[in-house]
Design a protein around this nucleic acid. Structure first.
Length: 504
RNA sequence: UCCCCGAUAGCUAAAUGGUAGAGCGGCUGGCUGUUAACCAGCAGGUUGUAGGUUCGAGUCCUACUCGGGGAGCCA
């Protein structure tokens, strides 16, 4: 009966190496199309999907009947001959000889096969099953390749993997909201929001280190760019200045993009990602602009969004803001075309108005002027000028973290750098050169009203062989979202944790 | 915390204040290569909840619940 055990076990991914041979696959039924004398079974096994053909001519009566009543997501074992066929997606299909049911579904499978289901809430509640669908499969495969590329990049460059603790006694930067957890007799500990301070200790011990770990932010942000739990990669180098940090950052991102392009063509295609744009991001250098220049550029660009002749700029802005014309058309169905067009124009103008209202204004014109931090609109407007990630460097001291190195050339500014991804995906990197002068760092700790005794170990790094050093943190999920062209960051992590959902 | 939008069958969705109709999925049958297969039939609805306006409410009004994405903050 069990002739399946006679043939080698292979995966869908390996099938093209076995043309003409008899093999066994284990997987799940993704879809079935049945005719009177032939059943077409789409079988997925985690590595891919292949069409298996159960023809009345090739199998016994019981097997044929079984093939005809298999339900979606039935776990099965299929034995058959691999056959090259132009009609098949992926170039090969499997002519079934034997079929075994491992587990039949207990109920109707709740996830629709259809390619795009707009109701994200329904799917995210069933994330444990949705993971089996094509889009999550492609996205999470790209996440996997991204992670491997990151590890390889740092390994090749002799960075030591140096993991920071998850439980920390206080805020690394003293600004954002933290998740408190009870910690035995010591009172409260917090889930880390960054491993950076620890990486600095590592850099002075090992030269070049990186942290790859989860971080936690208890911010009440509810947008497509935010998670409460996400993964951050934080390299740190001794004997490095701002320019070294920027160089590492762009080489790093270009390498990761290149690896995904090299190894994930299938996945990118499934997601419909425009790879030409990514190809351009493998070329260095990336544009660099100082904060002060960026402010002027933003202030100069924002009003142009009101100008209808600026079609290219306006189209890019709408794309970055994920403006979906179809949604409006759907909602307005049945209305007079003129009315629909008017509504579309109004919605577009709303987007432009919001961008302009949130953008930097020329100095003196409003509260928004040189010296403010970038808001989301500023990042979006700036990114309209580039097809590559852009590095923004030298930020005003008051809006950046206490450990940023003062810029000797520009009083009031610090040597920080952010990298902003194209297409409205926002900031994917934040970092810079660290303050290595003990006296100024002590001042900063006081100025930010941080408990100095908690930071004594950190200040020790400046007391014993302090050198120029720096690094950055890259948000993994935002990077993957950009690479995949995802609508929402929660698609880029297996089980997203957001402000109002921590299940499944 | 604030602003905007939404909720109709398991899913996707139609219905201009007047009989809640369809596609997918499910079930039954048909079909000689389908590929989001196709064809015929069957089952499946207190239109998110609670009030109100009206001869009459899925549709209009109020409140609430849940969800979406934007601001602030941030990767």
């Amino acid at each position: 009966m069990n002739e399946s055990y006679d043939s080698p076990l292979v995966t869908v991914r390996e099938l093209s190496e076995h043309v003409g041979r008899r093999v066994t696959l284990r997987g799940w039924l993704y879809n079935r199309r049945s005719k009177k004398t032939i059943h077409f079974l789409e079988v997925r096994d985690g590595t891919g999907i292949v069409q298996a053909i159960a023809s009345q001519e090739d199998v016994d009566e019981d097997t044929f009947a079984l093939a005809g009543r298999l339900a979606q997501e039935a776990a099965i074992r299929v034995t058959g001959t691999v056959q090259a066929d132009e009609r098949a997606q992926g170039g090969v299909e499997l002519v079934v000889h034997a079929l075994e049911l491992i587990a039949a579904p207990h109920a109707e499978y709740p996830i629709p096969i259809s390619r795009d289901v707009p109701n994200v809430d329904f799917l995210i509640q069933r994330r444990h099953l949705w993971l089996r669908s094509k889009k999550p499969w492609a996205t999470l495969r790209i996440r996997h390749e991204t992670i491997q590329a990151i590890r390889d990049f740092f390994y090749q460059r002799d960075f030591v993997c140096f993991d920071a603790p998850i439980f920390t006694p206080n805020a690394c930067e003293g600004t954002t909201t933290l998740f408190p957890v009870p910690y035995f007799e010591l009172g409260e500990a917090y889930l880390t929001q960054s491993g950076q301070l620890y990486e600095e200790a590592g850099a002075l011990a090992f030269g070049k280190v990186y942290n790859f770990g989860p971080v936690f932010r208890a911010e009440k942000s509810k947008t497509r760019k935010h998670l409460t739990e996400f993964w951050m990669i934080e390299p740190e180098m001794a004997f490095a200045e701002l320019d070294d940090v920027m160089e590492l950052a762009e080489q790093f991102v270009a390498y990761v993009v290149g690896r995904v392009l090299e190894r994930c063509q299938t996945e990118l295609k499934m997601l419909g990602r425009d790879t030409a744009e990514l190809e351009g991001c493998t070329k260095l250098p990336y544009p660099r602009i100082s904060y002060a220049e960026a402010c002027r550029l933003i202030a100069e660009t924002a009003p142009r969004l009101k100008d209808e002749s600026e079609t290219e700029l306006r189209d890019k802005a709408l794309k970055a803001m994920r403006f979906d014309e179809r949604e409006v058309r759907k909602r307005m169905k049945g209305e007079a075309p003129k009315k629909v067009e008017a509504e579309l124009a109004a919605q577009r103008n709303d987007i432009f108005d919001n961008l302009i209202a949130g953008a930097m204004k020329p100095e003196g014109e409003s509260a928004h002027s040189l010296g403010d931090d970038f808001g989301a609109p500023d990042e979006t407007i700036l990114s309209l000028h580039y097809d590559q990630p852009v590095l923004v460097h030298r930020w005003p001291e008051p809006i950046k973290a206490f450990y940023m190195k003062a810029d000797a050339q520009n009083p009031g500014y610090v040597l920080g750098v952010d990298m902003i991804a194209p297409n409205g995906y926002g900031e994917i990197i934040g970092g810079g050169q660290r303050e290595d002068d003990l006296t100024r760092l002590e001042e900063q700790v006081r100025k930010h009203e941080l408990p100095q005794e908690e930071f004594e170990w950190y200040l020790d790094l400046r007391r014993f062989g302090s050198v120029p050093h720096g690094g950055f943190g890259l948000g993994l999920e935002r990077t993957v979202a950009w690479l995949c062209g995802s609508r929402h960051i929660r698609e880029t992590i297996p089980f997203a944790r957001t402000i109002d959902r921590h299940t499944p």
